[in-house]
Simulated assay, not measured.
Amino acid sequence: MGRSGRLVLVVGPSGVGKDSVLDGARAALKDNPDVVFPRRVVTRAPGLGGEDYIPASEADFAAMAARGDFALHWPAHGLHYGIPQSIENDFAAGRQVVVNVSRGSIDEARRKYPGLLVIGITASPDVLRRRLEQRGRESPAEIEERLGRAAAFTLQGDDVAILNNDGALKDTVQAFLALLQKRR
């Protein structure tokens, strides 16, 4: 295939702190050209906070997908997400490519990118409830729905590593960085 790099998928229920862990890892690795964190294309208006994404309209996203501009893309929670095809250049250069994806895209990624690593980020139900309530984006009913989905969240496979993010963020970030190094 001509790939010497590796895809690292980061997955986990909403509210477990994936963006915070990724932000911490990105900051720690800012001077390391061998690990990249590509921006996702998202059908969301610009400037809504959270991750640094590339906004796209539904029509533009559909056109990009039809042209083959995405290495991976998927719908989730009423939006569409895409990972730019340019990650192929990073693989060819031997880089690790770290992306936040929906667990529904894992099987496709496994088919396209053998040897990948899936890092599942979790949090206990009490911690997750508190975080969801604090961020104030969901109604109480939506929080209960998210907690139910989180309880059903499972990952399986030899390519999976699980990180619990109940404690200090810096500890989870260090464990994340160790996985990137160890599982090379």
Rank of each mutant, 00 (worst) to 15 (best):
K30W: 06
D69E: 15
N165P: 11
G148P: 05
P140D: 05
A27F: 08
L128K: 00
P114L: 06
P84Q: 12
N165E: 07
D166I: 08
G24R: 09
G78C: 02
G94N: 04
D171H: 13
A109P: 13
R137D: 07
S105A: 15
P33H: 06
G47I: 01
V21K: 00
P46T: 11
Y113H: 15
I143T: 12
E108V: 14
V35Y: 04
R95S: 12
V16S: 07
G136Y: 00
S20Y: 06
R184I: 02
G2K: 08
K30Y: 00
R111L: 10
G2Y: 05
L117Q: 01
P55S: 12
I143F: 03
Q174L: 14
E138R: 03
L169V: 06
T122W: 03
G47T: 01
R110F: 06
Y113V: 09
I83V: 15
Y113N: 06
A92D: 14
L79S: 12
P13R: 02
L169A: 06
L147M: 10
S14A: 14
D126W: 01
P46Q: 08
A62H: 07
E138L: 04
G115E: 02
A76I: 07
P140H: 09
P114S: 12
R6S: 09
G120M: 06
G2S: 14
L72N: 09
V10I: 15
V8A: 00
A123G: 08
Y81H: 03
R103D: 03
E51G: 12
R110C: 11
F91C: 13
I87C: 03
D23E: 14
G15P: 01
D60G: 15
V160N: 02
A28S: 12
I83T: 13
L179M: 15
K182N: 14
K182Y: 05
A59T: 15
V173F: 09
V36E: 01
F37I: 01
F153A: 09
G94R: 07
A63C: 12
I83R: 03
G82W: 07
L79K: 07
L155R: 10
R67V: 08
L7T: 14
V8G: 07
N89M: 05
W74L: 06
V173H: 10
G49F: 04
R103N: 00
Q174F: 04
G2W: 00
P38D: 10
I119P: 09
E145R: 14
R44P: 09
S57P: 10
G120Y: 00
A141L: 14
P84G: 13
P46I: 13
R149E: 14
T154Y: 01
A28P: 11
I121N: 04
P33T: 10
A62E: 15
N164G: 07
R137T: 05
R129F: 03
D166K: 10
P125W: 05
Q174Y: 02
D52K: 14
